[in-house]
Simulated assay, not measured.
Amino acid sequence: MIIVSASFTAKPGMRDAIAEISRKAVELTRQEKGNISYTLFKSSDDDVTMMYFEEWESLDDLRAHLKTDHIREAREARKDMLEGTVRVRVFESKEVEL
């Protein structure tokens, strides 16, 4: 399993607009091949921090997702609403003996 966290900072007053833009992308992503979960979170500590948390069956499924029209459109629509860069972390889940 592949786990992704993508955190970013919204410009002041843009959090709700970003959430609205993301609504369609989240809905369509959840229907994609290999998607296990895909959720946008808003920080409970402030009005600007947000994070996507995603689970994918494989890295190939994640790569295909990044090329979809709905993701490209959402990125383009919100690019001027973000402060700084998006911080993405990708993890691979594997069974390990303890």
Rank of each mutant, 00 (worst) to 15 (best):
D61P: 01
E32N: 08
E57D: 06
E54V: 00
T39N: 15
E83M: 12
E54N: 00
S5I: 04
H65C: 10
T39I: 15
E55N: 05
V90W: 00
R87N: 15
D61T: 04
M14D: 11
S43I: 07
T29I: 02
D16Y: 03
T29Q: 02
E92N: 10
T68S: 15
R15A: 15
D80F: 05
S93L: 10
V90G: 00
I21F: 08
F53N: 08
G84S: 01
T49W: 02
I18N: 05
G34W: 01
S37T: 09
F53D: 00
D80W: 03
H70W: 10
M81D: 07
S7K: 12
K42H: 12
T85W: 09
A17N: 14
V90C: 03
L62M: 13
V90D: 00
K11L: 14
T9Q: 15
Q31R: 15
R30M: 10
N35Y: 05
I21R: 07
L40R: 06
S37M: 07
D46C: 03
R78K: 15
E27A: 10
G34A: 04
E27D: 06
S58C: 04
E54P: 01
L28F: 03
F41G: 09
V88Y: 01
H65S: 08
A25R: 02
E92S: 10
G84Q: 02
E76S: 15
I2D: 00
K33L: 11
A6G: 04
G84H: 02
T29L: 02
A77R: 12
A6K: 01
K67G: 06
G34K: 05
A77L: 13
R15H: 11
A77F: 11
D16Q: 15
A6L: 06
F8S: 02
V96G: 03
S22T: 11
V86E: 06
M1L: 10
D61H: 09
I21Y: 09
R23F: 09
L59D: 10
P12D: 08
E95W: 04
G84E: 04
W56D: 00
V4E: 00
G13M: 08
M81I: 06
R78P: 05
